[in-house]
Nucleic acid binder design. Structure first.
Length: 876
RNA sequence: AGGCGCGUAGCUCAGAUGGUUAGAGCGCUACCUUGACACGGUAGAGGUCAGCGGUUCAAGUCCGCUCGCGCCUACCA
């Protein structure tokens, strides 16, 4: 005998049990080889920087829904989990921890520091996987990966060496984004532009031989590195100054006044531009055109170096003030105004970045980007929602080379080796000697951008460059679900690398999720204190309610305002489901047939109706999931379970199961209730895996839902006629209840209803469900034929007219007024409809169905208007 | 400066290819402790679909403009 469902729904009582059972069953691990088609999702590897946040919970939920859906639906499903070492992000965390102990990474040394990093990683990777498990994520933990694993590292190094060999990776002395706090280069994407209230200062350079030229700058300290002043060649104000020189007031340098049409917009400011090639990208380009020297004035930590003369040693911002003061002393300050402009900040530590001249490694992105662009344009990779395509194209079209070297220790060390002569040897294995001159070599101390290894994730996790079974079976993957914020950082780069190394896309579809926000729509952040911990939510509401909420909020292309009241609502839904199951279970008698084996001919109206609704729901849920409409899937299931199954079917089942009604077979009702509930549980399982599994086991379901076939649409279960008939029953029941409220009668006060000349099918339906309808509408009598008693209220639902006998005097002035309002609304609509039908252009141009629909509606309204009129006019 | 998204009930959001009375959840009101469930039941109230103009027999839905809000990309000193 199966166990009785506990009275109280207590998710924590069974969540752990089911997760363990699923994992132990091997359901998370795909077959290999397999005759089933593959369905593979690679997890966007969370950073091992700390705990998972609610955004991860969202993505895990959506990925798990798809994986469970496809697994049940006959696919060889693989959801491959893993974590990302997250170079700078993690190193910043650990350095912060070290700082608390009064240590620094340099004090520790590279080796000891990396030991600390690994300890950190081990702790957080474990945290992350246990959080994923708490949410029910059905990942294949036997394939869990980490970006610094030997297998993955090998792929990263291999890719680097190959790209270098192909000329797609190169080393260059360039301006890059430099973080003076992290002491590393950053890619353009890692720069966060923020509008700052700064200043725009004017100062004069005295020109040799007399006169001066006034320039404007937002960063006065950079004038220490000026190697020219540029004007527009056509500008009459300065034409005579071109070719003359300036004696720099603070450093020992003569700088020329040059003409450059590209750099200078004569209408901006004074029309003269100071040129600082080592600290401004535009100026750098200008210097290339004019062969100007590039004077670096900064140390890596942002202090002024010896090139800054007497300002050397000052921090860049202190130097800014000092330079301005010094200019004032010389009488060279000219003007200053407030100036709001975008300034680049470090994504990880928020420090203001400097354009900085240094030797770095770059990826030549153009050829890779072209292929990636084409892939999306041709639809080989499809982005959802589709409007992201425009953003994607825009970025890839204007892409610049990607700086991939980082002056960090936590990451994949660049496989480049230098000899004292400066020759470069790039190799997967450390070479014994320089391949050019045979001298001893030393490896580049730098590591690769974390995103370089992330870009290879679809390849490296499956064992590439080896031709592994996994690679052959699971590449390309079917779906990627991730946040839109890493479309460029990650998605685009995976597409580039996937095509380059494998000739195929890494995934066929990408679903980009929105951002989880708080109830007020604010971005969640630690500083605002509005972050929600997914594990807390799981403890409070249960994993299923958390999942359902996130899925229900996940409308495509929108952010998700997460309100705990909403989650309370969905916990209530879980409770409702639980209680419905308790009802079904307590009436089980052991004679239940499987749903499929019920003889359809023997089914009564409510069973046929319910199967119809189930079938509609099945079709709609499947379609919703295929199109990543998680919100739709939730809505459909919520309505089916609550409105159709609980509110109607269970209520209709009660008279039968308690012996009040003998019109229907209790055995059929039991079988249908159990069977349909099980189907609903299967439909819900991808979204709410724990509670569905728990209930199914209590209903005597053999096996586990996780591997049960996902319900398919069965045409035999569609009964359109019965569906319509049942709706008229619902309509009458609801009308009676409504009238009862209208006249203020208690819900149990008995009324009687007479159907007026119902069509044969309808009369039969009501006759069959007499006991149920009497109960649902609290009737004393339901007549399917007979004369309308005097004084009865008359109304219609669709084509069906009926009369309700109310107690003497119940239908007073207030009620008449209410009904009169109803009547006039009906008449108004009728008038509008008739006007439309009288319009020849509507009748001739609108499609036939639309016209037919309007005619039918017209009949109904006319009908109802007449009956309501009679009720009011008849002095009832 | 370009590009994208959004503006529908008190709140948060759904509303393919234009077509009946614009939906849901929460909240609100009234009544109901009925043997699955008060995390419940029943019935309600609540919307000039941001504004203006256009296309159409018909527009929340298509087009243009305006006004708000948000985001992304960008080397204007």
């Amino acid at each position: 005998m199966r166990e009785t469902l506990p009275t109280r729904f207590e998710p924590s009582q069974f969540e752990g049990k089911w997760y363990a059972a699923w994992e132990a069953s091997g359901a998370f691990t795909p077959e290999l080889p397999s005759s089933k088609p593959p369905f593979v999702i690679l997890i966007p590897p969370p950073n091992v920087t700390g705990k998972l946040h609610i955004g991860h919970a969202l993505q895990f939920t959506l990925q798990d829904i798809m994986i469970r859906f496809k697994r049940m639906d006959g696919f060889n499903a693989l959801w491959l989990p893993g974590t990302d070492h997250a170079g700078i992000a993690t190193q910043v965390m650990v350095e912060r921890e070290l700082a608390k102990e009064g240590l620094s990474r340099h004090a520790l040394g590279r080796e000891k520091f990396l030991e600390r990093m690994w300890a950190w990683k081990n702790q957080y990777a474990t945290n992350i996987s246990s959080q994923a498990k708490a949410l029910g994520a059905s990942c294949d933990w036997t394939r869990e990966r980490f970006t610094l694993d030997p297998m993955l590292s090998r792929a990263v190094i291999h890719a680097f060496v190959r790209l270098y060999g192909e000329g797609l990776i190169y080393r260059a002395h360039r301006l890059i984004n430099w973080c003076p706090r992290c002491l590393t280069a950053l890619s353009d994407l890692e720069v966060v532009h923020k509008d700052i209230n700064g200043g725009l200062w004017d100062f004069a350079y005295p020109v040799e031989g007399g006169g001066e030229i006034v320039v404007s700058t937002t960063r006065p300290e950079t004038m220490l590195g000026d190697t020219a002043v540029a004007v527009h060649p056509e500008d009459p104000r300065y034409r005579n100054l071109i070719g003359r020189f300036i004696r720099h007031p603070f450093v020992d340098r003569r700088i020329p006044i040059i003409a450059d049409a590209e750099l200078v917009d004569p209408s901006f400011g004074t029309g003269a531009v100071k040129v600082t090639p080592a600290h401004d990208p535009n100026d750098f380009a200008t210097a290339e055109r004019h062969n100007l020297p590039k004077v670096n004035i900064l140390n890596p930590d942002g202090t002024i170096n010896e090139a800054g003369g007497r300002f050397a040693g000052m921090d860049r911002f202190a130097a800014r003030k000092a330079v301005l003061e010094a200019l004032a002393e010389l009488g060279l300050r000219r003007g200053e105004k407030a100036h709001r402009h975008a300034v680049g900040h470090c994504q990880r530590c928020d420090t203001i970045l400097e354009p900085y001249l240094s030797d770095q490694w770059f990826v030549r992105t153009k050829p890779l980007a072209e292929v990636a662009l084409e892939a999306v344009r041709k639809g080989e990779v499809r982005l959802h929602p589709e409007f992201w395509v425009a953003t994607y194209e825009n970025w890839l079209t204007n892409i610049l080379d990607w700086c991939i070297s980082r002056q960090l220790w936590w990451g994949h060390r660049i496989p480049a080796y230098y000899c004292p002569e400066g020759h470069i040897t790039v190799a997967e294995q450390a070479p014994a000697a320089c391949e050019t001159c045979g001298a001893a070599v030393e490896q580049d101390p730098d590591v690769l951008d974390t995103w370089f290894s992330s870009a290879l994730w679809p390849l490296s996790t499956l064992g590439w460059p080896e031709e592994t079974e996994d690679l052959k079976a699971f590449y390309p993957t079917q779906l990627l679900i991730t946040g839109f914020d890493i479309l460029f950082f990650w998605v685009a780069r995976m597409i580039m690398m996937g095509y380059h190394f494998r000739g195929k896309p890494p995934f066929l579809q990408v679903h980009l999720t929105g951002l989880v926000r708080d109830a007020q729509g604010q971005k969640m952040s630690k500083t605002k204190g509005n972050v929600m911990d997914p594990l807390d939510l799981v403890r409070t509401y249960g994993a299923d309610a958390v999942r359902f909420t996130l899925a229900a909020l996940a409308s495509p292309g929108r952010d998700l305002p997460l309100d705990v009241r909403r989650m309370e609502g969905y916990r209530a839904f879980a409770t409702k489901l639980w209680n419905a199951a308790r009802f079904v279970q307590m009436h089980l008698a052991g004679d239940e047939a499987e749903l499929e084996s019920l003889h359809l001919q023997n089914l009564s109206l409510p069973e046929r109706w319910l199967l119809s609704e189930l079938t509609e729901a099945t079709a709609a849920v499947r379609e919703a999931l295929e199109g990543f409409r998680f919100d739709e899937a939730c809505r459909i299931l919520y309505q089916f379970v609550w409105n159709d199954f609980c509110d109607w079917y269970v209520e209709l089942a009660k008279p039968v199961l308690t012996g009040v009604s003998a019109a229907r077979s209790p055995q059929v009702v039991r079988s249908t209730a159990r069977g349909v509930l099980l189907e609903a549980l299967k439909l819900l399982h991808p979204i709410m895996p724990f509670i569905t599994e728990e209930i199914a086991s209590h209903l005597g379901f053999s096996g586990m839902l996780i591997t049960a076939p996902y319900p398919k649409v069965r045409e035999a279960w569609r009964f359109p006629e019965e569906r319509a008939l049942f709706r008229s029953v619902q309509g009458v029941v609801q009308a009676v209840r409504s009238y009862r409220h209208l006249v203020g009668l208690p819900p149990t006060a008995p009324l009687s209803v007479v159907l007026e000349n119902p069509p044969a099918g309808v009369a039969q339906a009501f006759a069959e469900l007499r006991d149920e309808v009497v109960r649902l509408a609290a009737l004393s009598k339901l007549a399917t034929e007979g004369a309308v008693p005097a004084g009865a209220v008359r109304d219609a639902v669709g084509e069906l007219r009926f009369a309700i006998v109310l107690p003497e005097g119940a239908f007073g002035a207030k009620e008449r007024e209410k009904l009169a309002k109803e009547l006039s609304a009906t008449q108004e609509e009728l008038a509008r409809l008739r006007a439309r039908l009288a319009d020849a252009s509507f009748v001739t141009r609108a499609p036939e169905e639309v016209v037919a629909q309007s005619r039918a509606r017209e009949r109904e309204l006319a009908h109802r208007a007449e009956l309501l009129g009679e009720t009011l006019g008849g002095g009832a």
